[in-house]
């Protein structure tokens, strides 16, 4: 009897310990990134580092503004490409899809989510880049190419979250709109979708997080020039690309500056996560 009790207590402790693992993981991640990154940023000078437009590691000039701007532009482009298609597709799946097509379409979207980013990058390199070359000339690796590829990659995230948000709207909203004489399409677009808007917004924010953190696919198609991008057709380097491209051979302050780039990216992600949980909480209370 006593051993039984002991076993229960021990295992309770084990489960509790396991539950704390994710807390420990987040603490370790924050500690290792910030303790390496912040002293570096202070050494380079926060203003020089964050607003410097020149990245010349060989001359000890570390300004990551081109990469910050690059990440923001490419993410914005992905949103412009991916969000309209994603939301419309979610509306289709929730309200327009014939019963026979749905069992095919749903797994297809899940497949899209499962494809590894290196395969997306390869696809971008051998299909989208040559197409861009033909249409606009130049190398074909540009901000526009990266935006299109990222727009495709965030589709499943946006579709998944938006679809469940639209499905969560009570049927009575739709029926009410119909009863007031609106068409099926009108009811969905004027009544059901606006009611789901904070859920859809949460999906878009998740998509932003995925796009800004994407690495391997972007490297393949963005051109990776570490200069301020001038136009849509210029090559661009994101923060993520900066880390992967140079980490392999960097040393000393250069290596530290790359880690600091990761810290800046991490702060962006934390802010996006915060925004997401605020929107989601508002959704639950509202």
């Amino acid at each position: 009897m006593n051993t039984q009790k002991l076993k229960e207590t021990v295992m309770h402790g084990v489960f509790l310990g396991a539950a704390c693992a994710s807390i420990l993981a987040v603490a370790l991640i924050c500690w290792f990134l910030f303790s390496n990154g912040i002293p570096t940023i202070l050494e380079i000078g926060p203003i020089k580092f964050l607003t410097g437009t020149r990245w010349k590691p060989l001359n000890d000039i570390f300004g990551i503004l081109p990469m910050i701007v690059g990440s923001i532009y490419v993410t914005a482009g992905a949103i412009i490409v991916g969000v309209p298609i994603g939301i419309l597709c979610a509306i289709f799946m929730a309200r327009f899809c014939p019963k026979k097509i749905y069992p095919i379409l749903k797994p297809a979207i899940e497949l899209l989510a499962g494809i590894p980013s290196i395969v997306y990058g390869f696809f971008g390199l051998v299909v989208i880049v040559p197409a861009m070359q033909k249409i606009f000339g130049g190398s074909g690796k540009s901000m526009l190419t990266a935006s299109i590829l990222l727009g495709i990659m965030i589709l499943p995230t946006i579709i998944g979250v938006s679809e469940s948000a639209i499905r969560a709207v009570p049927e009575s909203y739709y029926e009410g709109a119909l009863a007031l004489g609106d068409t099926h399409e009108g009811s969905v677009f004027r009544t059901v979708v606006p009611a789901a808007k904070s859920g859809i917004l949460a999906g878009v924010i998740l998509g932003v997080g995925r796009a800004i953190g994407e690495t391997m696919a972007v490297i393949m198609v963005a051109g990776n020039q570490a200069v301020m991008p001038g136009s849509l057709l210029d090559g661009v380097r994101t923060m993520t690309a900066n880390i992967v491209l140079e980490m392999g051979y960097a040393s000393g302050l250069h290596r530290q500056a790359l880690i600091a780039t990761g810290v800046v990216l991490f702060v962006f992600i934390l802010l996006i996560n915060l925004l997401f949980s605020v929107v989601e909480r508002g959704d639950k209370n509202g």
């Binding site: 298609i85 597709c89 289709f92 327009f96 899809c97 299909v127 579709i159 399409e185 969905v188």
Partner: peptide, 30 residues
């Protein structure tokens, strides 16, 4: 109202078709 409804229907179908087409193109091409 009818034209509007029709346009919206075309729009959502197009979005779904684009999504599936991209998937098929990617898998098929590779």
């Amino acid at each position: 109202q009818k034209i509007m409804a029709c346009a919206l229907r075309v729009l959502v179908w197009a979005a779904a078709l684009i999504t599936v087409a991209v998937l098929l193109l990617l898998i098929g091409y590779i």
